[in-house]
């Protein structure tokens, strides 16, 4: 192991990890918003919107992120829509993640049974109040494990961002391998960087999940 190499290029990795985290977070937050909206559309069976959501979910789930990104980054400019790499990363991740989040939210919403809804209704609660006070809190605790799994899945998916020239961790690693042939060091730092990002999150989530499960009964 060439420690001076590692020392020299650590700042590059830190910067790249930061970029991965920022774009990843933005994409994930957006995908949660999209997912929630799509889940509500399906839950309330909103006409027309419901069909659109169904098509979106299938398109998103049955194509690879890298193809989605290539279409956004290389294809769309030809139709006059120019997106920066960063924008592509965020939009691509949100497009992919939205469908996964939607399904997780929906299964949570559906887990709240009819009697709950009817007794809330018969207390005179409005539709939005039932959603806010009765359905969402219960759905959230059911959905959290699946949502957490999605977050980790999406964080890992950010690794393909380098394909649309985002200077993320993969990009830096590939660059260093190509330039200096210090493959071992470059890859070790790559693995370390992903561990630093993903490991704490996955540990926090599994603790959270255990707690939620305990509170559930």
């Amino acid at each position: 192991m060439d420690w001076s190499f590692i020392q020299k290029f650590t700042p590059m990795y830190v910067e790249a990890a930061w970029l991965t985290l920022v774009i990843g977070t933005l994409g994930i937050v957006l995908s949660i918003a999209i997912g929630l909206i799509c889940a509500l559309v399906k839950y309330y069976k909103v006409p027309v919107a419901r069909q659109i959501v169904a098509v979106y979910i299938e398109l998103s789930r049955n194509t690879p992120l890298i193809v989605q990104l290539f279409f956004l980054y290389f294809g769309l400019p030809k139709a006059g829509i120019l997106l920066s790499s960063e924008a592509c990363g965020v939009i691509g991740l949100a497009f992919l993640g939205g469908s996964y989040m939607a399904e997780s939210f929906l299964s949570g919403l559906k887990s709240v049974n009819d009697v709950q809804l009817e007794s809330a209704e018969s207390l005179g609660l409005r539709r939005w109040q039932i959603m806010r006070y009765i359905v969402l809190p219960q759905a959230a605790s059911v959905s959290i494990p699946a949502l957490a799994a999605n977050v980790i899945f999406l964080l890992k998916e950010t690794s393909v961002f380098s394909a649309v020239s985002l200077a993320d961790l993969m990009y830096v690693a590939k660059d260093l391998i190509g330039m200096y042939y210090n493959t071992g060091e470059a890859l070790t730092m790559l693995v370390a960087a992903y561990l630093v990002i993903i490991l704490p999150i996955s540990i926090v989530f599994s603790i959270l999940e255990r707690r939620v499960r305990r509170a559930g009964n």
Binding site: S159, A173, I177, L190
Partner: peptide, 14 residues
């Protein structure tokens, strides 16, 4: 825990 692309790099380059 690792992205598949990282594994691909480890195998292909490493």
């Amino acid at each position: 825990i690792m992205p598949q692309l990282v594994w691909l790099f480890i195998i292909f380059f490493g």
